[in-house]
Design a protein around this nucleic acid. Structure first.
Length: 284
RNA sequence: GCGUCGGUGGCGGAGUGGUCAAUCGCGGAUGGCUGUAACCCAUCUGACUUAGGUCUACGUAGGUUCGAAUCCUACCCGGCGCA
């Protein structure tokens, strides 16, 4: 408990203005920014991810942006490692680490930790070949505790569970204990009211479209193909559907708007949970 | 004016005598997830409710029937065809 590393965390839903706030804080507190965003990791995903521009950074160092090709994968585990390392480096420079972004699961991974069990390509490959029922049966039989926490319809999570079971015997218990974290977090929560946020989302969308969102998605699609594009989600998925003529131009804006809103709502739900478990101090 | 097809829940669109408060999609709400997390997944979505039910609903008004969103009649509204 002594000497926990102090970090500032700026969290909030999409379009809430986190990046701006992070830069402001960095200037005020002499910090550097670590992006906590599973999609800004990728090069070329700029407009669709509302990536902070060089000008907006105004000289403040930003980390974990553009560190992967869109075709490459990245994960919460890798993030936790990268972020840990960067936090140490930033502190060694005598600066304050400011983590900012919307991928809340990454915050969890960093702050509360993840069992350090890397993915195993070979094991995964075998599991992928099984049917849902086969996976369900094996997880149920070998690790009933973990099975009871999972949704049987959630194949992706089931696969990961089985991967761990096959390599480790069973899934270790969750280490979620705030007091055990090696970090002392100063939370800066930005959580605008519904109406305000919806409006901001729409405004940003209109801007993104104007700035060439469709063209960007076209480029990314060229690079990674439709399957991966789909996985990139939100704008990339929806505009991809449009590019494949699976949806009309008229439906583009309204669909985008509602998908983004869904996303923001899930983020807000996470924030609610956070408020119930950690001490936070709100700002706006 | 005649003929014809149609009017269903916030929207689109099924249903064509009972098992229909009404499939499904969209939209909306609430959540879950221990390495793909912008992914993946679940629940709810007419009203009221002591949660067992009760009520109001399928253009409007009547009618047939034990029973109608579903059949009949009239009317209103919309598409199409002929005038």
């Amino acid at each position: 408990m002594i000497d926990r590393k102090k970090i500032i965390v700026v969290a909030g839903p999409t379009a809430s203005g986190k990046s701006k706030e992070a830069v402001r804080l960095a200037k005020e507190r002499d910090g550097e920014v670590i992006s906590v965003d599973s999609r800004q990791i990728y090069k070329g995903l700029d407009i669709g991810t509302e990536k902070t521009t060089k000008e907006e950074m105004s000289g403040i160092p930003h980390h974990l942006i553009d560190i992967r090709e869109p075709s490459e994968s990245y994960s919460a585990g890798e993030f936790a490692q990268d972020a840990k390392r960067l936090i140490d480096e930033i502190m060694a420079r005598g600066k304050v680490p400011i983590l900012a972004g919307g991928t809340h699961f990454y915050f969890d991974a960093l702050i509360y930790g993840l069992p350090e069990i890397p993915q195993d390509a070979l094991v995964r490959e075998e599991i992928e070949r099984l049917t849902d029922d086969e996976i369900i049966e094996e997880v149920r039989a070998k690790d009933p505790a973990r099975f009871s926490q999972l949704d049987p319809a959630n194949r992706r999570r089931l696969i990961r569970a089985l991967e761990i079971i096959r390599t480790q015997g069973r899934v270790p218990e969750r280490p979620r204990d705030v007091s055990a974290s090696e970090y002392e977090v100063e939370w800066v929560i930005i959580n605008p009211e519904r109406d305000v946020l919806r409006e901001r989302i729409d405004t940003r969308l209109a801007q993104a479209l104007e700035n060439g969102l469709v063209e960007e998605v076209e480029r990314v699609r060229e690079l990674v193909g439709d399957e991966r594009l789909n996985e990139l989600g939100l704008e990339y998925r929806v505009v991809g559907e449009y590019l494949r003529s699976e949806r009309t131009e008229e439906s583009l804006l309204s669909t985008l708007s509602s998908k983004l809103w869904h996303y923001a709502r899930r983020q807000k739900a996470w924030l609610r949970k956070l408020a119930a478990t950690a001490n936070t101090h709100d700002t706006l």
